[in-house]
Design a protein around this nucleic acid. Structure first.
Lengths: 229, 229
DNA sequence: CGTGCCGTTGACGATATTCAAGTGCAGTGG
DNA sequence: CCACTGCACTTGAATATCGTCAACGGCACG
């Protein structure tokens, strides 16, 4: 269930304890549904077992900003260690299997120094990604920005999997990409077309193909160091 | 030294231990100098005692994105709990007094459950602010964006201080605002002029004056809940 | 066989950037 | 005391990037 990066921090007893606890809280969620809504009381952690989800913040007039995508194995903080309400929402993109770990269960788990470290690391990893996104939104053009996002998503989704042929399952719509990059869907469309024309990507029937990853990395000035623990 | 919000989490023994440890590491830094550079080895925490600083990430071609401003009392994570190199830089804006707490010293401090919670909370608070900034950069127009940033900065800087007259010391240049909002200095200038024309702000000789905070909040759709613990 | 969502495209307009030049002001050194 | 320098700020004009509005096609689903 956990990504190798995270599992590495634990020993067998920790993993057993975590999987036992998480296993009890697994639930299935349909596509495009809110899992946590901004303002909800804190609920500990969630682990994405299957499917894609996203975190987002919305303005009252409907504009919304996706803060990150959650892939299988990702740990999503839903208010761990915080007494205040959720400051953002979490929604499924595809149908999702999600393991929720409540605050009281966490209190037990974090007796283990290693599990405490794991949760801390997931929070820090999340913060690193958010900083990278800030750089992306603030400084890069639409073309670079989408290249960077696709790079990140490609690398994360093909984590471990050897990238044979260079394609991944890609359930994001152009509206999703727009909400993540702060662009309009129309402009995302045109930008994707430009990337396609330059032979950098190919998107067909929920599949993203990256024939020349180094070239795409160069366009987005992407470095994967911030993804590593 | 600590902001009331944070100090509230501690008891007297914790505060004594923290101030003793931090006091040993205080150093003075001139204005506009790097304190931590991206790529540096992790160095624990820093507490801003006096002056303003900022975190930023830079691209190779010189573009840079400010991730947050650090005000007196703020705790800046410089790689606590992380084994990897700093993913961003920290630089002074004004002359700064900064208390650095090394990793080994932290190892001692976090024996206390309350101090552990304090550090965790500061990391979570930082993440909340980053999310708010993502929303700001991705979804708001230049006018709204700067209004929001000025609101946030005004509220944070006048923390505790009763806002008599409604002005604060404001050492940020228009270039700083540009790097923080992802706009060009020229456009920041024009936008500030628009805000001024509408009676929302007044900036003179390093002083920011906000005659009508509610009005500015409305423009930036600013809510201060994310700043609270 | 509609209906709705997603993707696509064109024309037009708004927002933000670039380039360039110039002002005011504090600090420096002759 | 007065150039001289550097820096922050300001403004105008031209341009590029991106958004808005509108319409249409394909495709899955009921």
């Amino acid at each position: 269930m956990l990504k190798p990066d995270f599992a590495r921090l634990l020993d067998e007893a920790d993993i057993a304890a975590l999987e036992e606890t998480a296993g009890r809280g697994v639930r299935a969620v349909g596509p495009r549904r809110d899992i946590i809504r901004e303002g909800d009381p804190p609920r500990g952690f969630a682990i994405i077992v299957e499917g894609w989800a996203c975190r987002y913040k919305a303005l009252h007039d409907g504009r919304r900003q996706i803060l990150s995508f959650l892939l299988p194995g990702d740990i999503a903080n839903m208010g761990w260690g915080s007494d205040s309400k959720a400051d953002h929402s979490i929604a499924s993109v595809t149908p999702v299997q999600i393991a929720q770990i409540g605050r009281d269960e966490i209190a037990v788990l974090v007796e283990s120094r290693r599990l405490r470290r794991l949760l801390l690391h997931s929070v820090l990893a999340e913060a690193r990604m958010q900083r990278e996104w800030l750089l992306n939104l603030g400084q890069r053009s639409a073309y670079e920005r989408i290249a960077h996002l696709l790079c990140e998503t490609f690398v994360r989704a093909s984590n471990g999997t050897v990238t044979r042929g260079g394609n991944i399952d890609f359930p994001l719509t152009q509206v999703d990409l727009a909400d993540a990059t702060g662009l309009t869907p129309v402009h995302v469309n045109r930008t994707l077309r430009a990337l396609r024309r330059n032979g950098l990507i190919e998107i067909h029937s929920r599949t993203l193909q990256v024939p020349d990853l180094p070239a795409l990395r160069a366009v987005g000035a992407f470095s994967d160091t911030y993804l590593r623990l």
